[in-house]
């Protein structure tokens, strides 16, 4: 046969045959998934998207009481509430990206078993959808920031703020990277999904959310900063609150780790999507 076929389906697929181009062809599908997620989450709820505001506020208040007042952990001279809120806003986005992409295969098995479309559209849509809640929480955070500055708190937001979108994309990539690795593995080992909800909490404590990086020193600091989320949280706080100092080196390292995690995730996801229907 000398003729050309547009598509050939075989048993084997190359390790790096990722068909990422296909994902972009389905751009409209990604948009529809985002819309679907939004509508389905907030139809028939009392407060609708207000939940995005309420839950981080309550968490921040709780942190202020527990870690600030009771445990008396330093916040680098920044108002405690603002310090925790900054950490929460960033962490929530990462945690949502990770947990909500981690069940991509198992919770969509019915749909995936019926039609083919690039499976990667699903986690991408989830990550974009989660950004909506990040933006809302971020706006609330900015509101409180302005309030605190007006009432005389010593804060020094700086030009680092301009890097916020990059921080956001960085977190999305990292969260999705971990998420799709877990989702690929859960097709075979279901118990990993239990690990995620538990693990994400542990993960938070090895990330400087409830304590500042300045509270760490020596090998502890090195260890914590190897966590790819640590420099992101630190740099976000530095940008908006002016506390601590920017961690360029660790941030670069974190970017490299993120790239590797995401690449590994996509390769694994791609391998699993081919015939996960037979095992899920």
């Amino acid at each position: 046969m000398s003729r050309k076929w547009q598509k050939v389906i075989t048993a084997k697929r190359g390790l790096f045959e990722l068909n990422l181009k296909d994902v972009f062809k389905y751009e409209d599908l990604i948009k529809m998934f985002v819309k679907r997620n939004f509508i389905s989450h907030y139809k028939q709820t009392v407060l609708g998207p207000l939940w995005y505001v309420i839950s981080p506020l309550i968490t921040s208040v709780l942190f202020t009481v527990v870690f600030g007042k009771i445990a008396n952990i330093s916040t680098d001279g920044v108002p405690q509430f603002l310090f925790y809120m900054a950490g929460n806003t960033v962490w929530n986005y990462f945690a949502t990206c990770l947990t909500s992409t981690s069940n991509t295969f198992t919770s969509n098995a019915h749909l995936f078993g019926k039609v083919y479309f690039p499976r990667l559209t699903m986690p991408i849509a989830t990550v974009i959808y989660s950004a909506i809640s990040f933006v809302i929480q971020f706006v609330i955070f900015i509101g409180f920031l302005i309030y605190f500055v007006m009432s005389g708190a010593v804060l020094s937001p700086n030009l680092f703020i301009l890097l916020t979108p990059i921080l956001l994309i960085h977190m999305a990539a990292l969260g999705m990277g971990f998420g799709i690795i877990v989702s690929s593995l859960t097709t075979k080992y279901r118990d990993l999904s239990v690990l995620v909800s538990f693990g994400i909490q542990l993960f938070m404590y090895i990330t400087p959310i409830v304590y500042p990086v300045s509270a760490l020193s020596g090998k502890w600091k090195t260890l914590i900063m190897l966590n790819p989320m640590a420099p992101i949280v630190n740099n976000f706080r530095y940008a908006f609150l002016g506390c601590g100092k920017p961690e360029w080196g660790y941030w670069l390292l974190s970017a490299v780790i993120t790239f590797l995690v995401l690449l590994f995730g996509i390769v694994l996801f791609n391998r699993v999507e081919k015939d996960f229907m037979d095992t899920v």
């Binding site: 076929w5 547009q6 598509k7 050939v8 389906i9 075989t10 048993a11 697929r13 995936f112 078993g113 019926k114 039609v115 083919y116 081919k274 015939d275 229907m277 037979d278």
Partner: peptide, 22 residues
């Protein structure tokens, strides 16, 4: 399912010309 690429064959090949809607 194989033709609509929901899952892949154990061996053998499927050639397609055009978009498939399943």
């Amino acid at each position: 399912k194989l033709i609509s690429s929901v899952t892949s064959p154990t061996s053998g090949t499927i050639y397609l010309n055009g978009r498939v809607a399943s």
